[in-house]
Amino acid sequence: MAGYFEEMGWRELEDGEQPDHLLHMARFIFEFGFNEDFNAREWPKLPPPASQETVKNLPETTIESDGKSCPICLKKFNIGEKVTEMPCNHQYHTTCISIWLNTTNSCPFCRYELPTDDEVYEQFKRNKKRSEQKQEDLAVLHNSMFS
């Protein structure tokens, strides 16, 4: 049995350790390919926080024009004010966006997603992308055969 566990990248529970059923179920679904149905659905709760590394490395920019405000606290930015910019170019007060990204990983304005430190969620995203690609390939194939 130990050989099988090792082969699957699993290990036996320590004395008194409880199994993480959700993680195991997710792995089971992902690794054995019973995932078509699971992937068709959305992540069933708020996605996890953005990875701390990514948040730390978000660039700081300076406000150059008048009239824009922070979408989180709705306060107007002053010209010359230093703000944090997301990869989607949306700008926020550094404190405002840090609190939000510590809750969930996407831009509050356009839902652009940052990477997370959550292994199961990242796997879910990869599988979802793969199944979308598969759908697309099937559609291309179908169209080439019937048009």
Binding site: P44, L46, P71, I72, L74, W100, S106, P108, R111
Partner: peptide
């Protein structure tokens, strides 16, 4: 619920 975003009002 799970699709809340802080920029919604």
């Amino acid at each position: 619920k799970d699709q809340w975003a802080a920029a919604l009002t």
